[in-house]
């Protein structure tokens, strides 16, 4: 499942991020904000205008705003599956 499809307020672990579709600087910034493989995340809020973009991601004790385009590059580990 992609992060983009995760229902609000449901925690999931990031399995993989397709860095190749992200501009290098944004990939770097995402990693610096802790959005990386193995991180536990949940979606707290979604914007209202047009495609409910951007999204507010809860990660650790932080909230990070990212766009859905970023969220579509992030694959989540299926619940129940082990690493």
């Amino acid at each position: 499942m992609l992060l983009d499809q995760l229902p609000n307020n449901q925690r999931a672990e990031i399995a993989a991020i397709d860095w190749s579709v992200l501009p290098p600087d944004e990939g770097k910034r995402l990693r610096a904000l802790g959005v990386d493989e193995g991180a536990m995340v949940s979606i707290q809020h979604r914007g209202i205008f047009f495609g409910r973009d951007p999204i507010a991601l809860s990660i650790g004790r932080m909230t990070v705003a990212i766009r859905r385009a970023h969220a579509r590059a992030i694959t989540l580990r299926e619940p129940g599956a082990t690493a």
Binding site: E26, L33, A65, I66
Partner: peptide
């Protein structure tokens, strides 16, 4: 430039 991303800590 590439579509400007919106990545910020809240």
């Amino acid at each position: 430039g590439g579509a400007s991303g919106f990545l910020m800590e809240m």
